[in-house]
Structures are given as C-alpha cells and as structure tokens.
C-alpha cells in the first residue's frame, strides 16, 4: 500500500506531488463511502482524535469531526481563544494534558504561523494543521483541488485565480503550493494592500483588476475579507471593496466562456460575492463542503496508517 512521506500534515509545502495525489485518490474512495446509505467505516476504530481549536471555527471543526466519526474514531473537542493561553497555561501544557488522556492525533487550529510545526517536534501524536494564522490551511487546499478535479477532470494545465484578501489568507498560500505542485497556473487578485509584496516570487501572476482575473481563469476561488485578522487598516470601506472587487452574476454571464466559482466560506454575501453569483450554476461552493469531509477522512486515514 502507498504511504504518505510525512507523519504530520503541517502544510502543503511539506508534501510531495505523490502525497497530494494519494490523498486525492483516497478521498475519492471515501466520497463514495459517505454517499452510501451506511456512511460509516471502521477504519479508525480505537483511534482517539482531539480537535484542538485556539481560534474560532465552525465549518472546519464540524467537517473534521464528521470525517473522524465516519471513520469510527473517538473524538474530543477543545476550544479556546488564542488569548486565554496567554493568561495562564502554555500551549504545550494544554496539549500535553490532552495527550495524557491517551489521544493519538491532534487536529489543530491556531492564530500563530508555525504552531503545528512547533508542536510536532515536541509531542508523539500525529498533528494535522487545520489552519495556522496566515500560513497554511492544507486540508482546504486539498479539498479545493479535489473539487476542481471533480468538476474539470484535472488540475494540471488549468488556470486558477484566487481573488480577495490574499495577505491574511492561509487558504491562498496553501492553494498556491497545492495547485503549482499539480501543474496548474495561479493568479492572485485583490487590492494592492492585500497582496503580499513578494508573492510574485512564488511564480504566481498578480492582478489588481477583478475583471481581468475572471476573463483569464478557468476557476475563480474567491476569498473572504478577513476583517478579524486585519490589525491595521488596509482599505477604506467594505462598500468600496465590493464596488471594485466584488463579483456578481452579470460579470460571470458576460465572460466569453463559463468559469467555475469557488469560495472556502463563510461568504460575506454582498461583499466579495453577490447572492446571485454565489447561488448561480457557476458555483460549486456546496460541493466543496461535501468534498471537505471526504478529503479530511483521507488525510486522517493515511496518517493513521504510519
């Protein structure tokens, strides 16, 4: 049986092309599973997984929890805001306390880049990064690639435009790594203040014109404005943002060929996407959510085999 080259899923950066393919292929099998009348398999029986979330999350945590339960793993959840760690217990103590209760895997979200990396060097359990600050969100990138594969047959050779707040987005960075490793072309598009200055050095195209991005791409992956992660002002108002960077159905209909519309959620309707665009036939946003469970099942399953 094929195996992953890593013990932890810290980021797409650390995966090989084979790892990515293996995860996507495995996810395809699990997608079949979760569409059967009996959605559950016994693969991870006797494995205990802790979802440790130091930052708010609804859908990612829910998606992981469902993936874990459909694999028959035992699941515990821990949530705390990043600041409560500062008040008392250190991160390492918190995690070691959880591990002392015989937990085999940690799924972690944290606001500080590199925290899963930090943890993986200090504990025995497998670590899955469910988002570390503005660094990576590997399972989101994997499910995005899976969804593109589903819709367009292949990722290689496709043009994907990531539109919105690139600077504060872990989804953007993981997607860039993931798509490039599979041979896709990537463009990032957004206001100049929300595009990292050196991102061009990653081999992506950079645009500040949303119409240009839409007419260039096969897939538009639209990101949310991360107001909660902006510690400084980056643009004047949401009104101006939606006027100049928002996408509506008319813009999509006017393109000379159909494109696929994606969004990692949650959508700020009326800001980056109008409702008529989000709910249009272009959109595969809800497919992404479904695929998320299958991809996370694949990741957990493969890590548990090592």
């Amino acid at each position: 049986m094929q195996q992953l080259s890593v013990r932890h899923l810290l980021g797409i950066k650390n995966l090989t092309e084979n790892d990515i393919q293996l995860i996507l292929d495995t996810a395809r099998e699990f997608k079949d599973v979760i569409n059967r009348p009996i959605k559950k398999v016994p693969s991870l029986r006797d494995i205990t997984i802790a979802n440790v979330f130091f930052e708010n999350s609804t859908r990612t945590r829910l998606s992981f929890e469902l993936a874990e339960k459909r694999l028959s793993a035992d699941v515990v959840n821990f949530s705390a805001s990043g600041s409560s760690v500062k008040k008392g217990e250190t991160l390492l103590d918190t995690v070691n306390n959880i591990l002392a209760m015989k937990v085999d895997m940690i799924v972690m979200r944290h606001s500080s880049p590199g925290t899963p990396h930090y943890l993986s060097g200090r504990i025995k359990a497998n670590v899955v990064n469910a988002g570390d600050g503005t660094h990576e969100h590997p399972t989101q990138a994997l499910l995005d690639s899976f969804s593109i594969q589903d819709k367009l047959g292949d990722v290689a050779g496709k043009r994907i435009a990531i539109i919105g707040d690139i600077l504060h987005s872990r989804v953007a960075l993981s997607n860039i790594f993931c798509l490039q490793k599979q041979g896709a072309e990537v463009m990032v598009c957004g206001p100049t203040t929300l595009i990292p200055k050196y991102i061009g050095q990653l081999g992506v195209k950079v645009s500040h014109d949303v119409r240009e991005a839409l007419s260039w791409c096969d897939v538009a992956n639209v990101l949310r404005i991360q107001l909660e992660r902006q510690q400084i002002k980056y643009f004047p108002s949401l009104r101006e943002y939606s006027l100049y960077f928002g996408i509506n159905k008319k813009m999509l209909d006017e393109l000379d060929r159909p494109i696929v519309l994606m969004h990692p959620g949650p959508i700020n309707r009326g800001v980056e996407l109008t409702s008529d665009a989000a709910d249009s036939h272009h959109s595969i946003i809800l497919d992404q959510v479904e695929n998320g469970v299958a991809v996370r099942m694949a990741v957990l399953y493969l890590l548990a085999q090592l």
Partner: peptide, 18 residues
C-alpha cells in the same frame, strides 16, 4: 514593523509571517 516577526521577504511570505 508593527506585529512583525521576521524580515519581510520571500521567506516571510512562504511562512505566512508578518
């Protein structure tokens, strides 16, 4: 340099760090 953690450049971009 507000909230900055390391030198701003390609590496900080790769690491998602301010």
């Amino acid at each position: 340099t507000q909230f900055g953690q390391m030198h701003e450049g390609l590496t900080s971009t790769l690491l998602g760090m301010k």
